[in-house]
Amino acid sequence: MTFPITRHRRLRRTPAMRNLVRETYLHPHDFVYPLFVVPGEGVKTEIASMPGVYHYSVDRLEEEVREIQALGIQAVLLFGIPEHKDPIGTSAFETDGIVQQATRRIKALAPELVVVADTCLCEFTDHGHCGVVHGTGASAVVDNDESLALLVRTAVSQAAAGADIIAPSNMMDGFVGAIRQGLDEAGFEEIPIMSYAVKYSSAYYGPFREAAQSAPQFGDRKTYQMDPANVREALREAASDAAEGADMLMVKPGLAYLDVVRVVKERFDLPLVVYNVSAEYSMVKAAALQGWIDERAIVLETLTGMKRAGADLIITYHAKDAVRWLNGQYSDFQSR
């Protein structure tokens, strides 16, 4: 039947009617909140390009952890900026490394809070690449297989410190299989891997690289992160990681790659994570500060779009604000 028998607007007449037929809901349990931890004491410094996001020293984590808990957010993604960097990222796998210290502190404060440890070397190497580099300048090459051994050491060290989930973001070939084997051999068979399976070489990472102090000192990451033009390649990457033992798959970034989110969701039955990355956050914040957009409406619409596309979890710097808005029963995007 067609108009006038069929009138689609019948189901849109009132807020209650719209709530009855709403297909996609956001919930505080959908969100993972990123944290940036730095050396020192008494540090809480706002990141210039990411208003509302801070660097914390380990001793200042309690106030942030308590706020996160009070909001009902159940997981954090931990990034660390070390005191010293070297060519192989030694600080990434040291027992008293910054991520390890922060993990132990968070688990002591809130044992039930899920700590996801980002497992990469870029914040810890003096060259800013995600693995071991051989050569210099235009001839420099990131050695895939040599890097795997260091990533395994990092993952095992993070798990030993109390991390609940290992999230390798390096995009080396074979990284999930190597880390799975390393965790199992170290007695961490129960620790899941949240693989950055589909991570694009994206322009949307700029503010993060300031926050994590991880920009490459030469060249770029295009030889190991994915070409933004490709989607079949994303399926190959996800298939490899699933076969190697990934427990969750991730697509990063989110906003410009929702088509990729959808096809990965349709092809694989593992939980799917979407990273609402730094520039996506910063663009909204910048426009909101100018009064050009309704920040609350834009953020909730964006996060709903990510979930509608297939996200089971969303890593987002908006998490705390989003939960506050959802708890306030914001009319057209209220939680259930």
Rank of each mutant, 00 (worst) to 15 (best):
P4S: 10
I5P: 01
T6C: 07
R10H: 10
R22M: 12
E23G: 03
L26V: 05
H27A: 14
V32T: 10
V37K: 08
G42S: 12
V43M: 10
S49K: 01
Y54K: 03
Y54R: 10
Y56R: 09
E64F: 00
E64A: 13
L71Y: 01
A75N: 06
V76Y: 04
G80T: 04
G80K: 05
P87G: 12
G89V: 09
G89K: 11
T103V: 02
K107M: 09
K107R: 09
E112F: 04
V116Q: 01
A117I: 01
C120W: 08
C120P: 09
H134A: 14
T136Q: 12
D143W: 10
E146V: 12
L148A: 14
L150T: 03
L151T: 12
R153I: 00
A163D: 06
K199T: 12
S201C: 15
S202K: 04
A203W: 02
P207T: 11
P207R: 03
P216V: 00
P216K: 02
Q217H: 14
P228N: 11
A229V: 15
L249S: 12
P253C: 13
Y257R: 09
F268Y: 15
D269E: 15
E280M: 03
S282P: 00
A288R: 01
V299K: 08
L300F: 02
L313T: 11
L313C: 10
I314C: 11
I314T: 13
Y317D: 07
W325E: 03
G328H: 02
D332I: 04
D332S: 12
F333R: 05
